[in-house]
Amino acid sequence: MSTTRLAWAAGLAILIVLPFITPTYFLHLLIQILIWAFIYTAWSLMGRFGFVSFGHGAFMGIGAYVPALLWSYWNVTPWLGIPLGVVLSGLLAIIIGYPCFRRRVIGHYFALVTLALSQVVLLSLIAAREITGGSLGFTQRAVGYSWYALQFPEKSYFYAIAVLLWLFGLAVWRRIDRGIGREALEAISEDEEAAASVGIDVLREKMRVTVISAALTALGGAVYGQYVMYLNPETVSGIAVSLQIVFAAIAGGVYSLFGPSVGALLTLSLTEGLRVWFGANFVGAANTIYGILLVLCIIFMPQGIVGTLQRPKGSSARRDIAWNWRKG
């Protein structure tokens, strides 16, 4: 057995044992970290190739709200609602992504178009306040333990779901990383015209990774929604969430398999730790320090934490995060 396999086996064993030995509070934190790690990993599928989306808040919001609303108002099981939300997000990714790539909306322009998308979803959710409760949010109709409603009062169920989700995210990341698609995408991110001239279907490769990234993000949003039950537009969509995704993924590092997960682990433990430390007396103190750390991280560790610790293998050359972000 190779060392990598041994490490994987050990890691999995820890993940399996963990719910039996940790207090509920930590399990709650762990579930959140795993779900966000999955979402950050999904973002990095695009981000690592230089397509910096500030629109993933939109996909997450759709993924979370579609099944929640369908269940709470029309009694539709999340088993149908979740796939529907994922498909809708994928469609939205196509509607936005296709013309963007077609018309070569890149760099700052791509970032700001996707940012606008985040706002569209956020504001639509707030505007539909009759069913979403507007910016006050709403709580899903609870029925207790139910596989049909995908509701489990016991945290261990969601822990298992979150672990599986996270592993699924890593598997997708690895598949793209190992597939031929990656080389094509790297070629595209280096020089699009050159890539096209050697026969790479630039548009197809970009669309594929974008749709996968959006769909997975929606899936993450859905599981998050099922877990927390209470949904608020500001916590699952909009600029703040989009920025949070971009930050954490980049802070962790988007070139390595575990980079985004490390980003989730560190940023969430940090905010949670600061929150507990400061208590309820100093609202905002935790995020103040978080903001300072983010700026310092960007200035002093532009490669991300994992990237700073280990140079990316394979393409070896030192790169900045936004390798190929041409000035718009």
Binding site: L243, F247, A285, N287, Y290, I292, V295, A322
Partner: peptide, 22 residues
Amino acid sequence: APLNQLLATGGLLFFLQSFATL
């Protein structure tokens, strides 16, 4: 890289908003 510049000011956004809240 331009993205890092964008994110550095994004960190400032977090900071200013949270600091004002504090």
